[in-house]
């Protein structure tokens, strides 16, 4: 579970060591009774074990914005 912000992409790690990039904005908002939509084929890519926001390097140019 991850707090989302605009422009954020997620890096999903599976138990097979695969790194999958996920763009949350590609998915619609759901209610709490929804189970969402399948984005990872667990048979071929493995079971997701960790999700972290993909780190975008912060440079001086970003700080000045």
């Amino acid at each position: 579970m991850m707090l989302l912000s605009s422009g954020m992409t997620l890096a999903v790690t599976t138990d097979q060591g695969q790194q999958i990039t996920l763009n949350p904005m590609d998915h619609p908002l759901s209610d709490r009774y929804s189970n969402g939509s399948f984005v990872i084929d667990t048979d071929t890519q493995g079971t997701p074990v960790a999700v972290v926001p993909q780190v975008t390097p912060t440079t001086d140019d970003d700080n000045q914005q």
């Binding site: 579970m1 949350p24 998915h27 908002l29 990872i40 999700v51």
Partner: peptide
């Protein structure tokens, strides 16, 4: 606990939830 988040505006906050079956959903 899978995770927790701290934020200022609960009405606008959106979380992403990923399940072990490979499903993802966005939820307010």
């Amino acid at each position: 606990v899978a995770n927790f988040a701290v934020f200022t505006q609960p009405d606008n906050a959106v979380v992403g939830i990923l399940t072990q079956r490979g499903a993802f959903k966005r939820m307010r």
